[in-house]
């Protein structure tokens, strides 16, 4: 009984708030807090909404699709102006997306796409995983400038789409350059601990001095590998060039310390481009492309990594 009263009271309390808020109200259904990157995405989305004076209704689905569908239905019932979804899985969205379409509420997908008809959502804002790998490969090609280089690769979790795409992207990036050769490739499960363990075995199996570069599918594995390289008495960043993907704060710190050479950003700011597209669409009906690719920005020692580290460290990574 008491619970019901509280619920009722909170509904009554929320209703006028929505009416009072700024001209745009947008619902955001987030997957949950599965990783540091995800937490940063949530923080940045809230910041972006605040910057634009948008009233953001946030729903954490705790990694469950049914929670996301419930949240979307409640957003529709509340009559929001638009909905952002970071879909936890690819399938099973048709029905709820059609409900949103019937209510004439535009839906933007963040970070991941869904297996549904394209007409059911306005646009999808995602990074291009293959492109990220390619940027890493091209950076190494330029860095080596024709010199011979034996590369070891730390893959992500076997069979996961980031691992597959970042691997093939890197191979595209270095293709046609015979001086570059991937000599060992093994999974480090995207974790620091496994990155360190696998790097240790690379250093012994190949002989640390013959390895010239490390490509890791994410920064965490690179950070683990840096420790393994140091323990083997080599200088990470100098003896072995290190390039990885994600641009988490610790990677910026490692670059600032000279222990890592480059990282490619998987930006947590998916909401910025999404909200830009939505604002344009709601203002004058500009229909954006079905896919908005976020920038895969390359960070090297040339950037002020300490400043970026300080900026990023409070985002929740």
């Amino acid at each position: 009984m008491k619970l019901k009263t509280t619920l009722l009271a909170s509904v009554i309390a929320i209703a006028p708030m929505a009416a009072l808020a700024a001209d745009l109200t947008i619902g955001f259904s987030q997957i949950g807090s599965e990783s540091g990157w995800r937490a940063a995405e949530t923080t940045v989305t809230k910041q972006e909404a605040q910057k634009r004076g948008i009233d953001l209704k946030f729903a954490d689905a705790q990694q469950k699709q049914e929670n996301q569908i419930k949240a979307i239905r409640s957003f529709i019932a509340q009559g929001v102006d638009a909905i952002l979804i970071a879909p936890v899985v690819a399938t099973g969205w048709d029905e709820v997306l059609e409900e949103a379409k019937d209510a004439e509420i535009p839906v933007v997908l963040l970070d991941r796409t869904v297996d549904a008809d394209e007409s059911l959502y306005l646009t999808a804002v995602t990074s291009d995983l293959v492109h990220e790998g390619k940027v890493a490969g091209e950076w190494l090609v330029a860095e080596m400038a024709g010199a011979d280089c034996r590369i070891v690769e730390l893959q992500g979790t076997t069979g996961s789409s980031p691992a597959i795409d970042r691997k093939s992207g890197f191979e595209q990036g270095i293709s046609g350059h015979d001086n570059l050769e991937i000599v060992r490739s093994q999974t480090g499960d995207f974790t620091r601990a496994q990155g360190k363990v696998v790097m240790e075995s690379f250093l012994k199996a190949e002989g640390g001095e013959t390895i010239c570069a490390l490509y890791a599918h994410n920064d965490d594995m690179a950070v683990g590998a840096i420790q393994a390289i140091k323990e083997a008495g080599l200088k990470p960043g100098e003896d072995i060039k290190i390039v990885a993907i994600d641009a988490v704060p610790d990677a910026h710190k490692a670059i600032a310390d000279g222990e890592m050479n480059a990282t490619i950003e998987l930006t947590p700011n998916m909401a910025g481009p999404a909200l830009d597209a939505l604002e344009a669409y709601l203002a004058d009906g500009t229909v954006p492309d079905k896919w908005i690719q976020t920038e895969s920005k390359l960070f090297t020692a040339a950037d002020d990594n300490m400043a970026i580290f300080n900026e990023k460290k409070d985002l929740g990574y």
């Binding site: 990783s35 499960d189 974790t191 620091r192 601990a193 496994q194 360190k196 950070v223 683990g224 420790q227």
Partner: peptide, 14 residues
């Protein structure tokens, strides 16, 4: 030991 090895506590994966 596992946390000390990577100089960090990784609650998801440790």
């Amino acid at each position: 030991i596992v946390a000390a090895d990577i100089k960090g506590a990784d609650a998801n994966n440790a």
